[in-house]
Each structure stands twice: as structure tokens, then as C-alpha cells.
């Protein structure tokens, strides 16, 4: 039953799926980077405030 795809190059199946997975990851990492950037921006500004605050 599965004989027909035994003749296909074992790597070929993963070509298409790699494109899809990498595509999904691209979107997810894009938003993660934005989130990290915003997070870093606020932590940075907090640190600045800390420095200026009287000890």
C-alpha cells in the first residue's frame, strides 16, 4: 500500500514542510521580536529612572 512513495527521495517530503514550518516560524518570531523590543524599551527606561532617582 505504501510502496508507491518508497520510490520518492526521502528528503523531498521535508522540502515542502520545511518551507511551511519556516514560514510559520517567521511570523511567530517576527511578533516575538517586536514583543522583546517593547519589553527591552520599557526595562531600559525604567533603569534610567532608577539611576536618576535619589538614593
Amino acid at each position: 500500500m505504501m510502496m508507491h512513495w518508497l520510490y520518492i527521495d526521502p528528503g523531498s517530503g521535508s522540502y515542502l514542510v520545511q518551507l511551511i514550518i519556516a514560514g510559520v516560524l517567521g511570523i511567530v518570531f517576527f511578533f516575538r521580536n517586536i514583543k522583546n523590543y517593547i519589553k527591552a524599551f520599557f526595562t531600559r527606561s525604567n533603569r534610567k529612572t532608577d539611576k536618576n532617582s535619589p538614593s
Binding site: H4, W5, I8, D9, S12, G13, S14, Y15, L16, V17, L19, I20, I21, V24, L25
Partner: peptide, 18 residues
Amino acid sequence: LHIHLNAKFNKKPKSPNK
């Protein structure tokens, strides 16, 4: 992504035009 989706695609015997 790496196991379940990957497995689903590997079951299909289609080869994309690289």
C-alpha cells in the same frame, strides 16, 4: 511543527518543484 505537522506532510507523496 517539527513532529506532527512534519509527519502529516511526509505521508503525502508529492514532490514540489524545487
